[in-house]
Amino acid sequence: MLDYLLKYYDQILIQFLQHLVLTVSTLVLALLFALPVGFLLSRVKWLSVPVLSVLGIIYAIPSLALFAMLIPLVGLGVKPAIIALVAYSQLILVRNVMVGFQSVDASIIEAGKGMGLSPAQLFWKIEWPLALPVILGGVRIAATSTIGIATIAAWINAGGLGKILFEGLYQNSIPKIVWGTVFVSLLAIAANQLLLWLEKRSALRARGELS
């Protein structure tokens, strides 16, 4: 078991890094979309039901089916993988961004407005730091679920730790399955812990408990 790791550590490392890059780029692109949409939904309430319903439907599509659907459109590789992963993460991210901004006490906003803060000042000084814990909570859940689903992306040649897992399944190789599982789990746990730490820190700051 350990022999396999010592022999192929370079390959596993490459797959680990591929997986990490896939996850990080997915989250960055997903947030570029989810932050403005979630903020908009927190302001325009009637939009939230249709938008979240559509995102819910996307979330319900089995990942293998979604990857397969994307092949004729964008081919194989990293591109369809990221498109699918971004689409999946939207439900969690948009919902948390929306809830984050909605959870800021209305009286705090009113006081800020009444003092003459401009919309931009109100956003950056007040709303953003107070909504951040809930947003980071969404990023955390989206990150772990993306790491999970990204293993399946190996099936469409996107690389990552899914590759070694699929190989293990096809070749009935226990070391590949075990090491693949171990490293995917490590990545997921590490991402979860890091984001959880950031989330807690931002929550303490939002409550004025960080000294």
Binding site: D105, S107, I108, I109, E110, A111, G112, K113, G114, M115, G116, L117, S118, K125, I126, P129, L130, R205, A206, R207, G208
Partner: peptide, 23 residues
């Protein structure tokens, strides 16, 4: 301009609305 108007009028509400993340 609304922000300019508000900056020269003090505003106090029942819920206070202090910014919790600021000293």
């Amino acid at each position: 301009p609304v922000t300019q108007l508000r900056r020269k009028i003090g505003y106090v509400i029942q819920q206070v609305g202090l910014f919790p993340h600021m000293t």
